[in-house]
Design a protein around this nucleic acid. Sequence first.
DNA 1: TATAAGCGGA
Length: 660
Amino acid sequence: MAASAAVSLHHHPFSHRQHRHHPPKRSRLPSSYPRLAAFSAGAVTGRDVWRNPDLHPRRRYQRPHYIDRSVDMAALLHQLSQTTTPEELHAVMSPYLGDPAGEHQLSPRFMVSLLSREADHRRSLALLDWMVDSAGYPPSAFAYNVVLRNALRANQFPLALGLLHEMRRLRRPSPDPVTYSTLLSALARAGRLDAALALLPLMDADGVAPDLPLFTTLISLALRLGDHAKALALFSRLRAAGLNPDLKAFNAALHALCLAGLLREARSLLLTEMPASGVAPDVVSFSTVLAALVRRRRFLQALSLFSEMRTHRVHPDLTTCNIMLDAYGQLDMAKEADRLFWSMRRIGVEPGIVTYNTMLRVYGDAELFGEAIHLFRLMQRKENEQNVVTYNTMIKIYGKTLEHEKAGNLVQEMQKKGIEPNAITYSTIISIWGKAGKLDRAAKLFQKLRSSGVEIDPVLYQTIIVVYERAGLVGHARRLLHDLKHPENIPKETAVKILANAGRVEEAAWLFRQATNNGAVKDISVFRCMMDLFSRNRKHANVIEVFEKMRAVGFFPDSEMIATVLNAYGKLQEFDRANAVYQEMKEEGCVFTDRVHFQMLSLLGARRDFKSVETLLEELKCDPNIDKKELHLVAAGVYERANKLDEASRIITQIRNLDP
DNA sequence: TATAAGCGGA
């Protein structure tokens, strides 16, 4: 059966796809289309011309082969796309059907031009069908891609996928990089990551070599899946393929480097490589790295990068200001935050809701409760938008001032305003009540949430467990954890994470095994947290087991996970396997943190394979991303532990010759 | 294509 039937295309009132396998018919103007005969009165518009080419003055003494030589195309197409319905379109085109040799033939270029301006998926589909079925024009990937794009914009995913499968089946034309790029980015944007992932094997099978936009799409997809290592590997492949990254690709790579914690690489990409490639970093490039520096608590580096923006003539925007306010706050520089906040309008940036929320938190952290409450009242008076974050922040502040009644009142107030509390609101208030000794209130709220089907959040769960434990109700806490062994309303992945974070090795391992056997683990963070749990508990064989499972499922480990697994191999004296993983990951384009390289050096030293130590050392010395001083210190330590003190001191002396 | 809010112990 045709793929188009499988996605119910023939149910579509405007689709003529069921004609596809019939011989082309000579259509007639439907008699139910009265306006076509009645155009003679009134002004002649492009549309009228389109309906009746004989109207156009030039047609009276010229016999153009193609209609597109005789009319004002731009105006005509504009009007058509504004007003034409598929029925009208079909009716209008009927005179030209089945007459390939006749004087009324429409040029393929005209058809494609018309199609490419058509934004409505039904009409573009009708056009495509008409071109293929009735007029016998060869379909092009471009034409398909237009319809595909329109379908996706209208959230018609089955239709779009049906078109892809039709292309793959008929092979006239075959899908091209644009086809896949369009589909993948739309599916990723819509959060349909599974559907997007399912396309990758098809793409491989079609032998589609990714172009720059498709690479960028794939990188973004990997980022959305939280798989930054994969994203980086793709960026390496992009460059290895000889493509020159554009701003979008660079920004995606910056994003990936930042998520992977490779901030030095991100910085040098931003400040050195991008300008060298003729791509000027924009405010997003800077904000990406700034945000990462702040996230990793490198506040002073963030401040210095912020001032470097001026050197590159990039002006801070709202996001940049918000990031810097956050940074000042975390540096306990509430005064500077305050100054930036009140000067934003002067530099042309209107504060937004994130700005206000950030300032509330900055004031709260600085124990400037008066300013926080003042700003909150100001927001309410000025009718600035407030959201659940605003309230959560204020609730937390009232918790700090030990006003649990006011905190509780805010929960009611937000609900009255139609702002729904979320898991964060609940864990905040439950914790506040727990600390205030209002155990019954906390427990009652939690029970209510559990029975009302609110999504159970790992932190919320842990909050109530801690409240129970603090109150001495160890039995209650234990029972909650026990319930997780057979989670009913909770995703298994969530349950595994809760148990792992609570340090429950056996239960977490048991449930994790179940989940992986069902193939239910779609989130790389579950693997990450199991590896951490086992590593913390010195279960190194299990660390390796999780790592291998993860690789088998197709996830790409990040630098931290590789460091963890190398450590495990070292503890088990499995040096060869450690080396194999190190080499393999490097070949696949994984960019390591220094820690991974240093770990490998230590392992080689522990095996007393000093020849390999020297080889790796020389290799790492050439890597501009590695901190040379630290590298020498690590290498010296390796020799020291092996009691080769001469070698150690030889390396130490090299440190003095390093460039400052 | 970047930004804001929760727990708590390692």
